[in-house]
């Protein structure tokens, strides 16, 4: 079964060079977690996620200590609101190398890519690398389990 059967074709994306603030706006407006970044020709060049945007408001220490069970009060961080100026940075600075699959990929292949890289959403591209859709791990996972035929 091909991944194209399960992907959303109306995919929200952002252009290279747009700001982190604009990315945040799209994520909030459409209530989504992943935003593919494309160039002017529509080719996928990166991915920016809700977590990337959230990071500017998260405590820094969560990246530095592997365990913070001993912190029972986040104190000043509870009221911390990131400086507006950080949202003026270009998405290019925070985006990741895109992990994607080709339109000819099967759903098992797509699920395997997501499982290995711990992704929630996976962009789908055509043979020229242009963004044509996106699948979520829930869509693909549910489709795969259905295929096993032991659920009604």
């Amino acid at each position: 079964m091909l991944v194209t059967n399960w992907m959303k074709k109306a995919v929200f994306s952002i252009y290279q060079g747009q700001s982190l603030g604009q990315a945040a706006e799209l994520l909030v407006q459409h209530h989504i977690g992943t935003l593919p970044v494309i160039d002017l020709s529509g080719r996928l060049v990166g991915v920016i996620t809700l977590a990337d945007v959230l990071r500017v408001g998260m405590p820094d220490f969560i990246q530095l200590v592997d365990d913070f069970k001993f912190v029972h009060d986040f104190g000043a961080m509870e009221r911390f609101i990131p400086d507006r100026s950080v949202l003026n940075h270009s998405v290019d600075e925070k985006m990741h190398e895109p992990k994607s699959v080709d339109e000819k990929a099967t759903i098992l292949h797509a699920a395997a890519v997501m499982q290995q890289s711990n992704l929630r959403d996976l962009p789908v591209t055509d043979s020229e690398g242009k963004l044509i859709g996106i699948v979520s791990h829930v869509d693909i996972g549910v489709a795969l389990i259905r295929n096993w035929n032991f659920i009604g």
Partner: peptide, 8 residues
């Protein structure tokens, strides 16, 4: 860093 952050 943790202490500084929670103290602001």
């Amino acid at each position: 860093i943790l202490v500084s952050e929670i103290m602001g």
